[in-house]
Nucleic acid binder design. Sequence first.
DNA 1: CAAGTGCCTTTATC
DNA 2: AGATAAAGGCACT
Length: 290
Amino acid sequence: MHIQLSPLRSLNLDATLCCGQAFRWVKRGDWWYGVVGDRVLKVRQIARRLESENADLAFVEDYFGLTDDLQRILSSITKDKHIGQAVEAFRGLRILHQEPWECLISYICATYKNVPAIMQTIQRLSKSFGSLLTLDGQQFFAFPTPESLANSTVRGLEECGLGYRARYVSETARRIHETGLDLGRLRRVDREEARRELLNLPGVGPKVADCVLLFSLGKLEAFPVDVRIRRALLRHYSEHLAKELVKRVSDGRSLSSSEYEKLSRFGREYFGEYAGYAQEYLYHYERIRG
DNA sequence: CAAGTGCCTTTATC
DNA sequence: AGATAAAGGCACT
């Protein structure tokens, strides 16, 4: 199966898969391999041609966010030179449409870790508690179900490298499994309400909630603020922020919740309804350019 | 190569 | 409200 990408429907597959939004993709040669749901996806991009194995057109279009009007989104968020440079550098980077359960647990595991460590943790979690999948004679593992994680021991989770996050994952999984909470339902409620629900779960603070809203619930205005975005805002946007706030968040301390909300609200108000896209371009640009 | 620093933070406590 | 500390372990320098 292949999709011919027009300039109006551009995609930068490498940037999309290595920018740190998803943790289950590896590149071997030209091909990216990733587990999505209960299938192993194999995709590559040759210029304007996107080829994939193991998935139909509708699935690929949805997962890679090809249904989003990227032209409109990028012109909407390009408010100044700096974001303009980030957009130019990675034009075609898209926000994936991830599965909410996997996204939620992944970002609980991601707190205070670096990306390679997060990928390793998710891999170990899947290997221990997910079902085996094969493609091209290689083994992959599906992300564990809520039931599987709810029934695993905290010790077993710790052994996957979760550390103190193990009890958060265990408790959140148990709650979602036992109540049958449908995270997908949150796609249909507004951002604030969905966020409040997520914040009730253990291990979920404002940053994790905003990531889940953005990467799996279609809330494109969500603006997660991690250390890197915080640095980017201080470097390039401090003239838009209250002096008092700049002073308070300039040292290495972790953000208080009110400081977090102020920075995140700035992002939403400044970049507008697609602020989450701006966040991802800034995040990736900051990673590459420092 | 060892040792120090940092990490897409959250929670508990004062 | 705001400040402070602790948390497991890996990656990078």
